[in-house]
Amino acid sequence: MTSLRVGVVGVGLMGADHARRLATRIAGASLVALADPDVERAQALADELGGSGGTVRVHADPLDLVADEGVDAVLLASPGSVHEEQLLACIERGVHVLCEKPLTMNGDSSRRVVEAERAGGRDLVQVGFMRRFDPEYVRLHEMLADGRFGRPLVLHQTHRNLSVPNPDFRSEMIVRDSLVHEVDCARWLLGEEIVSVQVIGPTPTRHALDGVVDPQISIFRMASGAVVTNEVFVNSRTGYEVRVEAVGEDGSAIIGRPWGEVYTTTAGHDGAAGTWGGPIVPDYRVRFERAYDLEVQAWVDASLRGEVVGATSRDGWISTLVCSAGMESLASGRPVDVALP
């Protein structure tokens, strides 16, 4: 196989972005199918992208796309609540799949996906933790691994969004859908497991939806005794800011900073992103555009080789377990141990 025929499930913001990426920027792949219950939106996107590599078929049912013999691999950008069924269908058919986070909504369903993949005897699932492909994150990972800072002691992670217009976005979703990135980064950067998590809610911003705890501060205790602090603020009103500071016994490093000296932020107006003396990017598609390109290209190349790169289904399962403990801590305010497999 010299070209991977890819179908994309879900044509919302993330899925449409991936579809355009596959159609215009990824080598060795062709976009051949889309699936979404909103057939009109899927058809409009198919019409837009069909000229880049022939006709793009449209399915109303994602399982029909998975069963399509003209599809070699599947990119899942559907809601997490339907991931288990779609992943199991991909595994049963034996096609490679790139699944946007979360893997599934709870530990039991994630375990079933891992077990099905193992029973099939082939690694097929990559989870879309794109920060593992971001050049700054890759560099920090290398620096921590080579020991130049001594033993890592503390990791500070910041994750801010401009706003969340979804009226159904609740406090638990900040843990499950946003903090999950920090969970994976902590495990990957430090090379060890999270053994306990505590989520603390300060006084919510006035911009939060009624009853939503935003921002949230969480503390991970790692197996080595290192501590990871996380701020997730989904209605910051300043823009999309993601950065990390790693502190070791003999030095430290910071990634994700766009500034040189004193740094301040001011809110934008009428829903626009704020500024720091230069513009703050509005969302993840700008901040991590390069990371997504590298991630999808690596997935295509690995799929053509019959391999999996990046985060595995087991990584997705463990991240789900940590987030489940985080949601329990959010409710109680107390540290919760992570039940690792």
Rank of each mutant, 00 (worst) to 15 (best):
G251L: 08
P37L: 05
L22S: 02
R57G: 05
G70A: 09
V242M: 10
W259R: 02
G70F: 06
A19K: 12
R176W: 04
A325T: 08
H141I: 02
R41K: 15
A339P: 04
A253R: 08
H18V: 13
P282Q: 03
P79G: 02
V71D: 05
D47L: 07
G274R: 12
V66M: 08
G12A: 12
G121H: 04
L340G: 04
L4G: 04
G225M: 07
R237F: 00
L144F: 03
L153F: 02
R131D: 02
V32M: 12
D36Q: 08
N166A: 11
R21K: 09
V338P: 11
P37S: 04
S3G: 06
E48H: 01
L87G: 06
I254T: 15
V71G: 11
G256L: 12
A119L: 10
V39L: 05
R176K: 15
D108I: 13
L13T: 01
G128C: 02
G10W: 06
T104R: 03
D61R: 12
V58M: 08
E249C: 00
R132G: 09
E295Q: 13
V82P: 07
V338F: 02
G316D: 08
A223H: 05
L103E: 04
A73M: 03
V247L: 14
Q157D: 10
E182A: 15
F233L: 14
A60R: 15
V66W: 00
V281L: 15
V308T: 14
E100H: 10
E245L: 15
V127H: 05
G54A: 03
G53S: 09
H141Y: 08
H156K: 14
Y240W: 07
R160P: 09
R148H: 09
S109E: 14
R305E: 13
D123V: 00
S329T: 02
F233K: 13
G28Y: 12
L65A: 11
L13M: 05
T2V: 06
H207R: 14
F129S: 07
